[in-house]
Amino acid sequence: MSIIEHIRLLTGGVFLLGGLVLFALELYGIYHMKYVLNRMHAAAIGDTLGISFCLIGLMIFSGWNWTTLKMALVVLFLWWSSPVSSHLISRLEVETNPELSKHLKKGTLEEITESKEEQS
């Protein structure tokens, strides 16, 4: 019985630590990047994978009960709502920023579309 407990503690701890590492990566990304869309990409790591890893670790600790189900629902709703909110933020940025093409590394929007048309 105690072996199972140990395995549970170990797997749960690995998941929890993995989630924390992902959060650290997210934080580094947010402060490292300068532009909204890049920073949003970094923030999405923690919003989806980091929080779900942490909650999976807690679920393993908690075992089969209603709390586990509630945490699974939390993961479900977060995965449902957080991509939508980042989609809206990115759409707002793209539609309202007049100097968007400055942030594109491969040249202006017009140049990219022109090169695509030439290829086709």
Binding site: F77, W80, S81, V84, H87, L88, R91, L92, E95
Partner: peptide, 17 residues
Amino acid sequence: SGRIKDDIILQMTAKFL
């Protein structure tokens, strides 16, 4: 004015949530 309106992704999410 050309602001964001009627976003289909947001509408579907809201419909379910």
